[in-house]
Design a binder for these strands. Structure first.
Lengths: 197, 197
DNA sequence: ATTTGGTTACACAGACCTGTGTAATTACGC
DNA sequence: GCGTAATTACACAGGTCTGTGTAACCAAAT
């Protein structure tokens, strides 16, 4: 009963550290030695928990695949809150773009499994948007969900190079226009650049 | 007079090949040996033209920094045509996202010069949008230009992982809404998913 | 025919990488 | 205390990478 927890803890420590280093510095830039050294374990232990670096990369990406949990808030608020959450993450110095996009950019066509999970992640977010839009009675929820997803990924890419959290607000402003154009009634924008006239 | 041209030609051949391989397979994934072998020259020759791989990377990115040339077409058409051009590029099997975003994702914080040129490129396109919007009499051209840039980068990122040229059309549809919302009059959308009712 | 400049072939240094093999060592359950 | 399982230290194989050093080579201009 006390043998399992340390085992799990070790695996988690490895994953956690790999996640941080992979994400911040790049998958190719980080070797397994670096990860092991960062935790203070031997490389052998790492390989006892993950059969290869590829397995570690896969586990890293699966760990990053977090579904948004259901919320009671009105759908429109949920959608717009997405961009507030983005802005907060952009403000962190530890934000370095979308791990899935980065992984595809880094590993290229070589790793098909990586692209697969990246596609699944993007699609899951798009579907989350879509379901909220359906709740709002939007006619072409499919198309609008795609467009909102574009704004999310666009702001992430822009912030990655510019390091400018304002990209999230710009995306939010655009999203508001798209939503209103689709007939969604929105409350007053609370804290935008310009105060309500 | 005949000694210079071959010199330039060789340097260009190196750059051209490096460009193709870097872009398609990733900067870190391609070694200088691979580039030299692809051209059929010795590695020594490559290093005679570029002092280091870093210099080659810089030259590669500068080569990718193409400014849109001025056009006589109406500004609104120019803006929307951007997304048509994107769609065409997405359809090519040789498209693999934005080279600047990819380079930043790949090389991370390690290469500050890379991020610098990436920022310059993104900003140059945003300014191109902005100037066209000013010609259209749009009030907040700055903000709208940023939003259009988000759509461009968003569709590029989405196409990178999904390989779906429809992302360009989705971005164009969103751009149309944003433009109309800013008071820009647009012609009928010609070839969208649904024919004009 | 000889100089000159680019090029080649090739070896090599030094670094880093992934992954394995092995024997000693620790820690924990019983 | 004893046995079991995880972990460690450490060496090493085999590969890749960037960058350099060197001597031969070739082509073109003089």
């Amino acid at each position: 009963m006390a043998t399992l927890p340390p085992k799990i803890a070790m695996k988690d420590r490895i994953l956690e550290t790999a996640d941080r280093l992979f994400y911040l510095q790049g998958i190719r830039a980080i070797g397994v030695d670096t990860i092991a050294a960062e935790i203070g374990i031997s490389k052998r232990t790492l390989y006892n928990h993950f059969p290869s670096k590829d397995a570690l990369i896969s586990a890293y990406l699966e760990r990053r695949f977090v579904r948004p949990r259901p919320s009671d808030k009105p759908p429109a608020e949920q959608i717009l809150a997405t961009f507030d959450s983005l802005e907060r993450r952009f403000a962190s110095k530890d934000f370095r773009g979308c791990p899935f996009v980065n992984a595809v950019a880094e590993l290229g066509t070589e790793a098909q499994s990586v692209r697969k999970v990246a596609i699944a992640f993007k699609e899951s977010r798009r579907l989350w948007f879509r379901d909220l839009l359906i709740q709002l009675g939007v006619t072409d929820a499919e198309a609008l969900a795609t467009q909102l997803a574009l704004l999310v990924d666009g702001s992430i890419a822009q912030d990655l190079v510019r390091n400018d959290p304002a990209m999230a607000r710009a995306a939010k402003d655009a999203a508001r226009v798209l939503l209103q154009n689709a007939g969604v009634k929105l409350g007053e924008p609370r804290e935008t650049a310009k105060r309500p006239a």
